[in-house]
Nucleic acid binder design. Structure first.
Lengths: 161, 161
DNA sequence: CTCCTAATATTGAAGCTTCAACCATCATAT
DNA sequence: ATATGATGGTTGAAGCTTCAATATTAGGAG
């Protein structure tokens, strides 16, 4: 499975890779730092609440939510449990199906509304204040390309072989 | 501190942001999945070993290593402890200073050499196989811009205010 | 020489994620 | 009816990271 000569990265790829690794390490940390400090929750928890707040009827099937949030169902389930304990979300079985909804409560909605401005401000400062319009478009395009490749390669045998 | 009207994201920024969030969530997960499966360690542990293997005399001051690895000193210290237990790294006090070196052992070097091909192959599959040369350059450039903005904004009052 | 401070690193507890095992429910075929 | 399997979700343990508190040591001030 691995007897072939390894395809090393060329200089240009090395450089791109190092910055990408730095980015995927530091950006999440920075987002969490702000959200913990100002709202006493993780960025991921905020993201889940935000997704629910945008969903029709402020509810989403757990599996669908996990998908949108880029998380495993297990991770999501734990998070929903925590958010439920805080009174921001509740579970609701779906009649003709074996699934459940995660439903944003009124206090939960209030919490997102409260947290959103600080979050958005942080996103501006951490990212967009350093980019002009053209760079934003480039980011969206290149990001989409990267995501596509990621999904493709993961679909084709998760990870390696 | 937050009585001003929030600067919301415009449509273009929204789109860029969502893909960026997906990226910083999924890419680390994919890297960890491969490294766990094939080498029984985290991507971060591999990264630390790799940094040491490239350093002069295969050693680096802990604070310097933390910096290069984009990690807190605390996180690094825990990781070095784990790697030490595995026999891949050892600590060594620095004579004229209150610091310590993390030193890659011979087995540690062997481990990186062993793990590198699979890792690089994964990086190709997850990322570079989806990019042409021009896109790689764009990624490096844009990534550098993002990192600069990140560092700048973090330096100017960590996170929010 | 001794006290004070700053720099460097370690530690333990708490919290989050992952992994694997498990439970529940619906669809299908026998 | 009932076994079978597949879908959707939950759970507990183990491991990793963070946070705050704590050593430890070097460099200066008096």
């Amino acid at each position: 499975m691995s007897s072939e000569a390894p395809r090393w990265l060329d200089a240009s790829q090395q450089q791109a890779w190092r910055t990408l690794v730095a980015l995927i390490t530091r950006l999440p940390a920075a987002l969490d730092t702000q959200m913990q400090r100002d709202e006493d929750m993780t960025h991921f928890e905020y993201f889940v609440l935000a997704l629910l707040s945008e969903a029709p009827d402020r509810r989403l099937r757990l599996s669908a939510l996990a998908d949108e949030a880029n998380a495993s169902l297990s991770r999501l389930s734990h998070v929903i449990t925590r958010l439920t304990k805080r009174g921001w979300v509740c579970r609701e079985p779906i009649p003709g199906s074996r699934g459940s909804y995660a439903v944003l409560t009124e206090p939960g909605y209030a919490k997102v509304v409260d947290a959103a401005p600080g979050h958005v401000e942080t996103v501006h400062r951490l990212v967009f204040d350093g980019l002009d319009d053209s760079e934003v478009r480039t980011l969206a395009t290149l990001g989409a390309t990267l995501l596509t490749q990621l999904d493709t390669s993961i679909a084709a045998g998760t990870g390696k072989a």
